[in-house]
Design a binder for these strands. Structure first.
Lengths: 155, 155
DNA sequence: TGATTACTATACATAAAAGTATAGCTATTT
DNA sequence: AAATAGCTATACTTTTATGTATAGTAATCA
């Protein structure tokens, strides 16, 4: 299980906009400096976010990037969708089918059940949390002990 | 967020042993055929599992691989540890520090809080579920609706 | 004791992700 | 209208993950 670089850095860039407030567009140079990313790489990230419709580019001398909607209306889900495949996507079983076309576990896959459980948990959160929530530290789900997973003990 | 091939196929190989029962060791050829993996690749996977102490190799004509302990005593956690880095490991913040040595968000990172939440959920399950549990389909956590994430609605 | 079956170890090849480079386009400002 | 600041698009390089190849070692069995 791995977090991709696009997800990590892309999400951070989105968070930058919430800190900026309404003081005009953020330039790639500012983003690059704030996040300690190279200028070309920051450019690549913003390009991806732009193509997903999450940010809008303002060209010309006073240009930069701005969010296309207020952070309260941007779900983390949208951001992750722009930045890569979901944890347990539709193509999972085809991708990990080994040398055959159809995975041998197609009918009853124990492993798939597990991934699916993880994915439901994560997707459930990503759908309910907005960029504004994340920025303001309101992401406190599971901090309290009673929300930790309750699994039947193994025999 | 991605599942690695090692994790996916390695876990499946481990599951094979629970189906086999006590009918002697599983050969690489059998594993390769069952999982539709190439023989060399199955060999590589079993080598990794062996070096982690999860399986033992029996050489010679009636050889193959066997589990080193009964599936009830093998936590999924151990298997994943053998197969790769955890979702949100100790090196996360150093790896995604961009061009600087220490991540600029070192003191207060909203994104880290999120990964950490996901990781606690997943780790919590992997620690409590055994290979036998997974094999027998007892992995039913979160199937019922009341266990789905309850996140405060965003303002 | 030699043939066979199976694991072992290392090196190699391929594919995908990550990150860089650069030549070009657009709007503002003077 | 020229200069400047900034975005755009594509191609390239590097690194990491994935998967393959092969020459060898060990144990069984006739």
């Amino acid at each position: 299980m791995k977090v991709t670089a696009l997800e990590e850095y892309g999400l951070r860039c989105m968070l930058l906009f919430t800190e900026k407030g309404d003081r005009g567009p953020l330039t790639i140079h500012e983003i690059s400096a704030s996040e300690k990313l190279s200028v070309p790489y920051a450019g690549k990230l913003l390009m991806i976010l732009k193509q997903a419709g999450l940010v809008r580019a303002v060209r010309g001398r006073k240009g930069g990037y701005v969010l296309t909607k207020p952070p309260e209306q941007i779900q983390l889900r949208e951001i992750f969708a722009a930045l890569g495949e979901p944890f347990f996507g539709n193509h999972h079983c085809r991708r990990y089918a080994g040398d055959s076309e159809i995975c041998v576990h197609d009918d009853d896959c124990k492993v798939r059940n597990m991934w699916s459980t993880f994915d439901r948990f994560i997707s459930g959160i990503l759908e309910k949390v907005s960029l504004a929530d994340l920025a303001s530290g309101r992401f406190n789900y599971l901090e309290s002990k009673e929300n930790l997973p309750r699994q039947k003990e193994s025999a």
